[in-house]
Design a protein around this nucleic acid. Structure first.
Ligand SMILES: [Mn+2]
Ligand SMILES: [Mn+2]
Ligand SMILES: [Zn+2]
Ligand SMILES: [Zn+2]
Lengths: 151, 151
DNA sequence: TGCCTAGATGGTAATTGTTACCAAAAAATG
DNA sequence: CATTTTTTGGTAACAATTACCATCTAGGCA
């Protein structure tokens, strides 16, 4: 867990809320904190699962709603990856993903060379690029071991 | 519409079916043809919408099932992108996508330099990469025009 | 500090995309 | 053709997400 990411994220969130007159609720803070502390890419339900112990009476609906708010504020990213339900990513700096086509796990990939792809020369037909990321699809280490037994 | 892609796709599909003893049904052929003819990234429901006119009595269930089969055969790709439902891509050669965060459109991006990223040097922690693609997120030309009126 | 009000939450019901199931229909095989 | 195997259509079940509304809370103000 990256304590700096947690602190910075929470601070940025609080100032954004003040800026826009959004009330700072326990639910919002705890849900964001939970996301910032993990470095996987949980679904709304998984977030609910780990936050409900800290906030008694937390509603699943609230989790969906708060996650939506956090995405709108730009402190969290929404991911669309295999496995039916939407995933959330507490890491908003540019990074890339390894996607396992067997277990649907999504693993962060940090790589400086991928962070600076030359896009300016592309024919984008008027599309305004704001960010990008590279998705590497394949089989993760765990799944690779399982399918090809200890050779 | 790229007639070669349609022809090649259908031919490949037919030989794969024979190989694996899968019956060649009208539904499978028409659904694949519809996907190969489009160069957007339709949902199952959109595919149903445009194929049902060609096959009377076509069931939505069949569309979902056939799309799944086509993905398993490797003649179409499943995409996970904004807008809740799964999208399908009839183009299976390596290519990239522009994703509009306003209208959720997904536009193909062909770019030679993106097709040959140097991955071998990366620390992949045992992940076996089979393919990759780059997602450029931003605002498409149409949406850009709308929000920032004719200046 | 104790009200007031806009906005947020919780709980339930509705909606939507997708899958399970099974009887009827269509392909392959010989 | 007759047989066997697999697919299809239709409906019911499911799961993720959203709509709704009564209740509650954060934040502003006396
Ligand atoms: Mn990530
Ligand atoms: Mn595509
Ligand atoms: Zn895996
Ligand atoms: Zn757009």
């Amino acid at each position: 867990m990256d304590q700096d990411r947690v602190d910075n994220g929470l601070r940025r969130f609080e100032s954004l809320c003040r800026e826009r007159g959004l009330p700072l609720t326990v639910q919002r803070r705890e849900i964001l904190k939970a996301l910032l502390q993990r470095d996987d890419h949980p679904t709304a339900d998984q977030v609910y699962g780990c936050v409900k112990e800290r906030i008694t009476g937390l509603s699943r609906t609230t989790v969906y709603r708060v996650l939506e708010t956090l995405v709108r504020l730009g402190v969290v990213r929404r991911l669309h990856h295999p496995g039916t339900s939407v995933r959330f990513d507490g890491k908003i700096s540019r990074h890339h993903h390894l996607v396992c086509r067997k277990c649907n796990r999504v693993i962060d990939l940090e790589n400086r060379s991928l962070d600076h792809l030359e896009l300016s020369s592309m024919r984008l037909h008027g599309f305004q690029v704001e960010d990008y990321s590279v998705h590497l699809v394949g089989v993760c280490a765990d799944c690779g071991r399982k399918s090809r037994p200890t050779s």
